[in-house]
């Protein structure tokens, strides 16, 4: 992709963000909005620079929590999908329960998890795993079930075992679906981490935001929110990169043959 084509794709959203920031800045000074209600972007940037060092520790805590929760959640989600796919009876029995479980509000579950697992890391991890694994399981199950019938029939005809069919056909076939699940789960996992830190924590961006809220430091809360957004974007992009690498057969222009002639 040329720089020009890249820029063509990137400038409309980029321009929209810049426009939004300019409007925001103008509005705060024009209507003289007080800082504790809505600080201006410039003010937020200043505050970010000042509280940079104290935020580093909190950011790191949230980062660790999110990544470990996402890792465990993704692994759980994939394993659950594999097992449910492998045992159709289990799938029929548990799939409705899985859907049902998503109607439980996460916030409502938090206090309960604290009673069961205490204020430590475990409760927080469980919150993130719970939000993460569902989109991955559902996406992977869909991908696995959608395997091309002709390819499946071919594999059976040549005597491939159940395991061979899974590893050589179904799993690679489901990868695009798995990745769309991973992308959703990645953004969920950050949200899960922040909520978990609200409920029980003494560090992390979620905790920091609660702290600043009680001091009416709206500007600092905005700084934290910006970090969360940046973090979320980076995680999303990394997954997109990984996806491009894993599914490179789909749009690869480098594999064009040199010596091949369609000879009879």
């Amino acid at each position: 992709m040329s720089i020009r084509a890249w820029w063509k794709g990137i400038w409309p959203p980029f321009g929209a963000v810049v426009l939004l920031l300019v409007l925001w800045q103008l509005a705060t000074s024009l209507f003289q909005i007080e800082d504790w209600i809505l600080p201006s972007p410039a003010r937020i940037a200043q505050e970010a620079e000042k509280s940079y060092t104290s935020l580093l520790g909190h950011t790191w805590a949230t980062l660790k929590l999110t990544l470990s929760g996402f890792g465990i959640g993704a692994a759980t989600g994939l394993i659950v999908a594999g097992v449910l796919h492998y045992i159709p009876f289990l799938r029929r029995a548990l799939y409705p329960l899985l859907i049902l479980s998503q109607n439980i509000p996460l916030i409502a579950l938090g206090p309960l998890l604290i009673i069961w697992f205490g204020f430590g890391l475990l409760s927080k991890l469980i919150v993130i795993v719970l939000v993460c694994f569902f989109p991955i399981t559902v996406a992977a199950l869909g991908g696995l079930a959608g395997t091309d019938r002709v390819m499946m029939n071919y594999m059976q005809m040549i005597g491939a075992t159940r395991g061979q069919i899974f590893w050589k056909l179904e799993l690679p076939y489901s990868l695009p679906a798995v990745f769309s699940g991973l992308k959703i789960a990645a953004t969920y996992s950050i949200m899960g981490a922040i909520i978990a830190e609200w409920i029980s924590s003494s560090e992390g961006l979620g905790y920091y935001m609660l702290l600043q809220q009680s001091a009416f430091r709206t500007d600092r809360m905005f700084v934290a929110i910006m970090i969360v957004i940046a973090f979320s974007l980076i995680m999303f992009s990394l997954i997109v990169l990984l996806e491009k690498w894993c599914i490179r057969w789909q749009n690869d222009s480098t594999a064009h043959p040199k010596g091949g002639i369609d000879r009879v």
């Binding site: 057969w249 690869d252 594999a255 064009h256 043959p257 040199k258 010596g259 091949g260 002639i261 369609d262 000879r263």
Partner: peptide
Amino acid sequence: GLGGFARAY
């Protein structure tokens, strides 16, 4: 005559 395509998708 497909030798050139061995590593193509």
